[in-house]
């Protein structure tokens, strides 16, 4: 007579057996790789995971002190030079020697307009904004500014971000056929001009283009297009995480576009209802995308502030 044994216990015992020490060679290989690899910056717009709710307050205080000093040192007293459309040929004063991100983070209560370079030093195009209202914070490493970061994702956030990204001439963009099934809808031919990128968004499933197709409102002759995209609110699951809301999507990611040669999307959505107003520009053959990202709960006056920032942009090709 045989004694029947507990199969679940057998399975657990089986799974407990095996190697459980990672060799030093793997740690060494990882270390060598990360020393050569930059962290991705293009994932979250207004969410800055490195900044707790306390840190921005500290930065704000530091920035007040800095701005009182630097405002006089770098820009002096405004003489009316910030009133009209920025001149793309002008070299931003701050771009010659970009200040550390903390020092160009926020603005004092009594704001005097100042110009800030948001690009990283090795970006193909250096983008500057003129800040004319208080409360804007730098997004270190992300290439942009944010205001009212409340720690929430769309559709709940009332915050906003203004992002400025650029790519070398000839870069191919994969505007996915479907943002949810992005990995299986990569177009065969990448888009390399703003017109081709626009055509990709127009053909993109689920993407609602808001007021699209218009020329960018730049007075200095930069070619491009302005359009708005919105993630469908149908993905909203109250109380769920971003990954849960997009769990039906490839790798739980809802993505608008990627870059040729990249294995991951370049621009992911942070939540249902997210609106991205894009200025897709050709700056001396390089593609620049200015992205105002916010949610349906973001106040209209804040959106207007962000658009004013975009319209103040100047561009410098190193």
């Amino acid at each position: 007579m045989t004694t029947r044994r507990d199969p679940d216990r057998l399975i657990r015992a089986f799974l407990l057996e095996g190697e459980d020490v990672l060799t030093d060679s793997v740690y060494d290989a990882v270390r060598a790789e990360i020393d050569q690899t930059s962290q991705r910056a293009g994932f979250g717009p207004w969410r800055t995971p490195t900044m707790s709710k306390i840190v921005p307050i500290g930065l704000g205080v530091a920035a007040v002190v800095f701005a009182l000093f630097a405002g006089a040192q770098l820009f002096g007293t405004p003489t009316g030079g910030f009133g009209g459309p920025p001149d793309s040929s002008a070299t931003p004063a701050a771009s010659a020697s970009p200040e550390p991100s903390v020092e160009r983070s926020a603005t004092p209560e009594a704001i005097e307009p100042y110009q800030v370079v948001v690009s990283e030093p090795d970006d193909p195009v250096q983008v500057s904004f003129t800040v004319t209202s208080p409360g804007w914070m730098d997004l270190p490493g992300l290439g942009g500014l944010t205001k009212n970061d409340d720690g929430l994702d769309p559709p709940d956030t009332e915050g906003i971000a203004v992002l400025a990204w650029s790519w070398p001439a000839g870069t191919g963009f994969h505007v996915y056929g479907h943002p949810c099934q992005w990995s299986s809808t990569i177009p065969e031919t990448p888009a390399t001009t703003w017109r081709e990128i626009l055509a990709g968004f127009e053909a993109q499933a689920e993407t609602e283009i808001l007021g699209g197709g218009g020329p960018p409102p730049f007075a200095h002759g930069i070619d491009g297009v302005r359009l708005g995209l919105q993630v469908p609110l149908a993905y909203e699951v109250p109380g769920a995480t971003r990954e849960e809301e997009f769990s039906a999507c490839d790798e739980s990611i809802y993505a608008f576009y990627g870059i040729e040669g990249g294995t991951e999307p370049e621009r992911n959505a942070q939540g249902p209802g997210q609106i991205d107003e894009l200025w897709i520009l050709d700056v001396d053959g390089r593609t620049v995308i200015l992205d105002v990202a916010y949610g349906p709960a973001t106040p209209a006056e804040l959106i207007d502030e962000a658009k004013a920032l975009v319209e103040s942009a100047t561009f410098e090709v190193p």
Binding site: E19, L22, V30, T37, R40, F43, G44, T50
Partner: peptide, 20 residues
């Protein structure tokens, strides 16, 4: 498994800023 762990750790490094 070692290859998978190595790949995962490198991915974690590059994507770490997305961890909220």
């Amino acid at each position: 498994a070692e290859d998978a762990v190595q790949a995962a750790l490198i991915t974690a490094w590059t994507e770490l800023r997305a961890l909220r």
